[in-house]
Structures are given as C-alpha cells and as structure tokens.
C-alpha cells in the first residue's frame, strides 16, 4: 500500500498570503492592462475619401465633406440612426472606426506557442500528480 501523504497544516497567515497573491494576480495581470489602455480592441480610424475633421480644444470635431452618402448609409439607415438620436457627425465617430485585422505572423506564432506551452505544461504536471492520487487511492 502506498504511503499516505500528510500535507502540512496551513496557518492563518499562510492562507491570507495565498488569497492576497491570487487577488493581486487578478488585478495586476487582468485589470491593469485594460485600465491603463494597453489591452484594448484594435480599431483604427478610417475616414471615407474627401472627409476630414479638425478637433477643437473642447474635444468637439469640425467635419469637412461629411454626408450620410459618404458614410455609405442609405436613407433607411440614416432614418434608423436618427431614431436612435444620432446625427451624421456623431454616427461618423462610430462608422469610421473599423477593426484592424492585419495579421502579424510573429504575434500569431507567439500566441500559439504560449497556448500550446500552457496546455502541455498542465497536462504533463497533471499526469504526474494524477499517478500520485491513483497510487494513494488504490495501492
């Protein structure tokens, strides 16, 4: 029969440390990158031909050449935007910000390595731990 593993007792301080570590990990790795604007959706500004704007000191924009046609919105779309409370100027701030799907081969490769490495590490270590569990349970 396999020897039963007796784990050490964890004191209050140790438990508190563990919880603090996990909480810190959540906020440093997940919360901060978004809060600081680092990990945000990759949208890029793409103005239609002939459309431009200047930004005023108070953040408002003065548009040149802007029309619903230039934004490729037909009369039905225009009517629905207006029912939602939008003008062509406020709608332009949304319509001219599409996603940028430029594929960075290095970035894709790095992401694949990280995800595969993570699952590989997890399965190898889990297998080792699982054998200990089975040995103690059944031997």
């Amino acid at each position: 029969m396999a020897t039963e593993y007796i784990p050490p007792k964890q004191g209050v301080f140790g438990q508190f440390f563990d919880v603090t570590f996990l909480l810190g990990l959540v906020f440093v790795v997940l919360f901060l990158p978004i809060w600081l604007g680092i990990a945000v959706p990759s949208r890029v500004e793409k103005l239609p031909p002939g459309v431009s704007y200047t930004t005023n000191a108070d953040g408002t924009r003065d548009w040149t050449g802007l029309s619903w046609d230039a934004l490729k919105q037909n009369p039905t779309m225009q009517a629905q935007w207006e029912k939602l409370g939008y003008t062509k100027e406020t709608a332009a701030a949304i319509i001219t910000m599409p996603f940028d799907y430029k594929i960075d081969v290095m970035g894709v490769g790095l992401t694949i390595i990280i995800i595969c490495g993570y699952f590989g590490f997890m399965l190898v270590v889990s297998e080792k731990e699982y054998r200990q569990v089975i040995a103690e349970k059944f031997d």
């Binding site: 784990p7 959540v26 790795v29 945000v40 959706p41 990759s42 940028d100 990280i114 270590v125």
Partner: peptide, 30 residues
C-alpha cells in the same frame, strides 16, 4: 482584434499554474 487581452489572460493562467504546481500542491491530500 483582442490579441493583447488574450495574452494577458494566458499570462494569468500560466502564473497561477506555476504557483499551484510548485507551491500550493503541497497542501493537497493526494
């Protein structure tokens, strides 16, 4: 579109896994 957020999430699970494998597992009854 959300590549950086994907990487930050993976970093979280990698660090958490290392923490469990090399430290926390000692407290687990097999």
């Amino acid at each position: 579109g959300y590549g950086r957020q994907l990487l930050s999430m993976m970093l979280f699970y990698i660090v958490a896994s290392a923490w469990f494998a090399f430290y926390r597992y000692r407290y687990v009854r097999r």
